[in-house]
């Protein structure tokens, strides 16, 4: 009886809401640190970071935990909200509302906005990074040897490179495929998270290319037609997140039964977190969109 209570009762559902919610707050902090490299660091560092995030096994485990948390938090949250609506079948003709905050009364609406945002965000970036065959590539490492020079970089000195990179080092996927055919099987091309070109004769790695997430992110928010709209929607979603956290952060501690002398500090930190984190997220697309 006690064990099943830990899954089904109203209080237990709240423990799970709180635990997943707080885990997602940690995720937000990590994700933010990564994103900030878009404006405070260069493309190379950002792409290295993106590659690390898609390949590192520890990160993999964390990312699965994040997916599960979002799913569980959203499903549990919607179930709780449906039950809560059912608990008052006939509403009041007049309500005052002064005894609770706007954010606390609209957690489900705010959460749903966040969920829609997360899904579109994943389609726009995560899915491209993971599944898009036409994801642009960029040089990660290059062997110093002549062959690599000739292969990779079109300069004045080697007027006939086998493929070209632009000034930022981006290589189109098509060119990479051309290499394989044009080199008549001299080079092998491996593609998974990174693209590796290996000389078949001696197994020497000539070139490693990685996916250029930086490029598609910048292009997404700079797009002449949709960039401004994307930026505005992103900022609005961060507004919803701010309100969700404004109530949610401290609420999670109360749900877990933590209400003691530290509560004022928790509340203060929660409000700071609720303001600073969404603002820092939001300035990134704004800067990308309006820069140059």
């Amino acid at each position: 009886m006690a064990k099943s209570a830990l899954l089904k009762s109203s209080i237990a559902k709240k423990y799970w809401m709180a635990l997943t919610g707080l885990f997602l707050c940690l995720f937000l902090a990590g994700h933010l640190a990564g994103n900030l490299q878009l404006i405070f660091s260069d493309a190379k560092h950002f792409n290295d970071y993106a590659l690390f995030m898609t390949t590192n096994p520890a990160v993999k485990i964390l990312s699965y935990l994040t997916y599960v948390s979002i799913l569980f938090h959203a499903i549990d949250g919607i179930m709780l909200t449906i039950q809560n609506k059912a608990a008052r079948p006939v509403g009041y003709a007049k309500t005052d509302g002064s005894s609770s905050s706007l954010a606390s009364r609209n957690m489900a609406v705010l959460g749903t906005i966040i969920l829609v945002f997360i899904v579109t965000h994943m389609v726009n970036f995560w899915a491209k990074m993971h599944f898009d065959k036409n994801m642009p590539l960029v040089v990660k490492e290059m062997n110093n040897g002549m062959m690599a020079q000739k292969l990779a970089v079109g300069t004045k000195d080697s007027p006939n490179p086998m493929f070209n990179v632009d000034e930022k080092g981006s290589i189109s996927d098509k060119i990479l495929n051309d290499i394989k055919t044009q080199s008549q099987g001299q080079y092998d091309l491996y593609k998974k998270d990174v693209v590796t070109i290996v000389n078949k004769k001696d197994g020497e790695v000539i070139f490693i290319g990685q996916k250029d997430l930086h490029k598609i992110t910048v292009a997404f928010f700079k797009d002449a037609k949709t960039g401004l709209l994307a930026t505005i929607l992103y900022v609005l979603a961060m507004g919803a997140l701010a309100f969700h956290l404004w109530h949610g952060f401290q609420s999670a501690f109360q749900s877990l039964g933590i209400n003691n002398k530290f509560t004022p500090a928790i509340k203060g930190f929660g409000k700071l977190f609720a303001i600073v984190v969404p603002i820092l997220f939001a300035i990134i697309p704004i800067i990308i969109h309006f820069k140059k």
Partner: peptide
């Protein structure tokens, strides 16, 4: 355990800590 079970069975909603 018993009081919370009874509370849930009676059809009261779940607390979202609004504080009202």
């Amino acid at each position: 355990l018993n009081m919370v079970r009874q509370m849930d069975e009676e059809g009261f909603g779940n607390c979202t800590n609004t504080g009202a």
